[in-house]
Design a protein around this nucleic acid. Structure first.
Lengths: 177, 177
DNA sequence: ATACTCATGTAAGCTGTTACATGATTCT
DNA sequence: AGAATCATGTAACAGCTTACATGAGTAT
């Protein structure tokens, strides 16, 4: 059972507990978004596919005029999720960082303009860090070594480290020539 | 002049010096790939578009039966490249990291299987680091603060830092429960 | 001889984003 | 009363990958 990228997030999120498409999108936006995003245009069709494939069970929970369909894992879904998590296939790891690309070409810029790229990157990382730190403490787990917390922690540590690297670069560049 | 993502790499790479589509692909694979990739399917059509838009000048350099078309920046191309590099638009920064996603859901795994995710990530980072370190030293610049070198340096430092973070996580997880 | 690098391109298909359409319920 | 949140979905489009087709020149 080859899972698509979107199937992985959706299955995993439902595995965290019974969820609607809307719930999945909110959870993704509050957590996995920084390392794995998903939009409604992917989520809803994927929920249907996974239900058709027998990995999810959807149950209608509409109340009055408000539509609502909540999904949970079937035994086959649990197995598929577990298989993916335990598989040792190559791990996808991609990034797209415009600041790096600009910096790569920065030799054609004067010093001040090149410095501005570095400063913009520092600001971006500081904002990301602040966003991660502000993730509702009430939703944080009791034990500081639960997995979503670990991932959040990595995000914070990374943006801190990276911001520091760029601050040092700023110093180095400012001094020269 | 709104440049597409691909236009940015292509224009920048040609700005580094007269290049064919094939050259651009090689340069990308040897350098920017880790933070901004591009395939032939993007590069060749983009070269045509940029030439039509007057940002690149393509010259036929076929020799005998071997086709070859080399591109260089026109004044308009230089201006467009400079404008993008100097613009203060929001910097694209996206990533997709399957190890993080797995870790996020790892609560359903037994300790040993969860640890295997962390170890696989460490191995991946070590490989990336080795690949970056092995980038032909002959192609390294004289001055250690030229920009492509800085970007390479960041890649190495990042994979080192990150590998260390995951090694520490491995220790922490191995100890508990 | 054979494999590798140089070189150009396209077509099909897959993935993902954005914008739109629609409406109920709840909070201020 | 009005804004925000809950909730579902689709259609058009943009972006990118993969595979294929083709062939010359160079190094082993």
């Amino acid at each position: 059972m080859e899972l698509s990228a979107t199937a992985k997030v959706v299955l995993g999120m439902v595995g965290l507990g019974r969820r609607t498409g809307y719930d999945i999108k909110s959870t993704v936006d509050k957590s996995s978004r920084y390392f794995w995003a998903a939009s409604y245009g992917q989520i809803y069709p994927e929920l249907k596919r996974l239900e058709d494939a027998g990995l999810l069970r959807g149950e209608d929970e509409s109340q009055g005029g408000r539509a609502r369909r909540a999904y949970s894992l079937t035994p086959a879904g649990e197995a598929a999720l577990h298989d993916w998590l335990a598989s040792d296939d190559e791990l996808v790891a991609e990034m797209r960082d415009e600041a790096m690309l600009k910096l790569f070409f920065a030799a054609r810029l004067d010093k001040e303009t090149a410095l501005e790229i570095v400063r913009a990157k520092v600001r971006q990382l500081e904002q990301k860090q602040a966003a991660l730190r502000s993730i509702d403490p009430a939703e944080r787990p009791e034990s500081p070594d639960d997995f979503p917390y670990l991932v959040l922690d990595y995000g914070i540590a990374y943006s801190e480290w990276s911001a520091q690297w760029f601050r040092e670069l700023e110093q180095k560049l400012a001094k020269r020539r």
